[in-house]
Amino acid sequence: MSEVTKEKLLAFYKTMLTIRKFEDKAAELFAAGKLPGFVHLYSGEEAVATGVCASLTNKDYITSTHRGHGHLIAKGGEVDKMMAELFAKTTGYCKGRGGSMHIADVDLGILGANGIVGAGQPIAVGAAFANKYKKTDAVAVCFFGDAASNRGTFHEALNLASVWKLPVIFICENNKFGISMNQKDHMNIVDVSQRATAYGIPGVTIDGNDVATVYEVAKEAIDRARRGEGPTLLECKTWRHYGHFQGDAGLYKDVAEQEEWMGKDPIVRLEEKLKELKFAKESDLEAIQTQIQAQIDAAVEFAKQSPEPDPEDVMADVYAP
């Protein structure tokens, strides 16, 4: 853990806390009927996006999922524009047209969240191919869940990426459930990383709730890709605190397992680590919490005060009417 300095850990904490507070506010707003459309929350998985994106720059690409708020924040997305998008306001990243599942910002290298399971995998391969074709050292990172590794897009993407040694890192956020189905019921392996063997690329499984571990292992895979050594499949074991979407009570989850994983909360673990290493006192963490909560509250006000879309613009930005 030599590379994980005090400054890095504190930066990780701020990013993870921003994601958590954004998601908690989104849950509150959705329950109050303030947000149109579904939201799929990332709470509990913050260490994955934070640890991975810490080694990326704006020239690097990511593809996200229906559970994408955390990826976007970790990649540098602005919470006010994100919140406005959830409110379907014109100041949102996609002018209110994309909503929670389709936020994108090409300038930040965010090629979009995606409402189709597994759809980001071939997009990431395409971006990685473009990077290699242009002879840059940029990489593409593809986030997806355990169940998405059952889809044909996954296998096609890994096959082509391995054959052409493309600079792409496949990040499986294994939260053990594909909607309401436990991983043990939809695949005959324990570790999704085993699937890398079929394509002759490295496959690694790690604790996805330990941000320092995620950072170091992901950095190694990213550096490998930048050197032209091809793709890696990195599986991060984690857990979503909420149901599949807001409104899903998650009754299919074993109560004891839910309690066990809630005890592995990545933010609480990082708080304990910061205090143990004497990198921060409780008062320091409380000050950060207050600051970030104010940022989220300001984002909500920005979204509320932003204009509604004009019905006359319904055909704007459409390729063919």
Rank of each mutant, 00 (worst) to 15 (best):
G98E: 02
S149E: 03
D137V: 02
K264Y: 07
T290D: 15
L29H: 10
T197K: 15
M1H: 10
V117A: 14
T90G: 04
V214S: 05
Y93S: 08
S64D: 05
R224V: 10
G99P: 08
D105I: 12
K14Y: 03
G44T: 05
N188R: 05
K25F: 03
D191Y: 13
A119C: 07
A298T: 05
A218T: 11
A225R: 04
L17R: 14
G76E: 11
Y13L: 06
N150K: 04
K304V: 14
N150I: 13
K135H: 12
R226S: 09
I222L: 09
K165D: 11
A280I: 08
Y42V: 05
K34F: 03
G37N: 09
G115N: 12
V214I: 10
A303K: 04
F154P: 01
L35V: 13
V139C: 01
Q289S: 14
D210C: 08
A119F: 12
S100P: 02
K59L: 05
T50A: 13
P36L: 01
K176G: 03
D284E: 10
I110W: 09
M16P: 00
V217W: 01
G243W: 13
G98K: 00
W239K: 01
V204C: 06
F129G: 03
K253M: 10
Y242T: 15
I201S: 08
V190G: 08
G118D: 06
R195I: 05
F154T: 00
G96Q: 09
A104R: 14
E45N: 07
L10S: 05
F22K: 09
Y93H: 07
D105G: 11
E286Q: 15
E312W: 06
I292C: 06
H155K: 03
D105V: 14
S100M: 01
F143A: 01
V79K: 03
A74N: 02
Y133L: 14
S2K: 13
F30I: 01
A320Q: 07
G200P: 06
A148G: 07
L270V: 02
K135A: 14
N175S: 04
L234M: 07
N175G: 06
G228P: 12
S306P: 11
L233S: 09
E46V: 04
A256F: 06
G247K: 12
K281L: 09
F177E: 01
G99R: 00
K89L: 01
S180F: 03
V255P: 10
S306N: 06
L111P: 01
D60N: 02
V217R: 09
L9F: 07
V314E: 11
A198H: 11
C53N: 12
D317N: 15
I169F: 00
S43W: 00
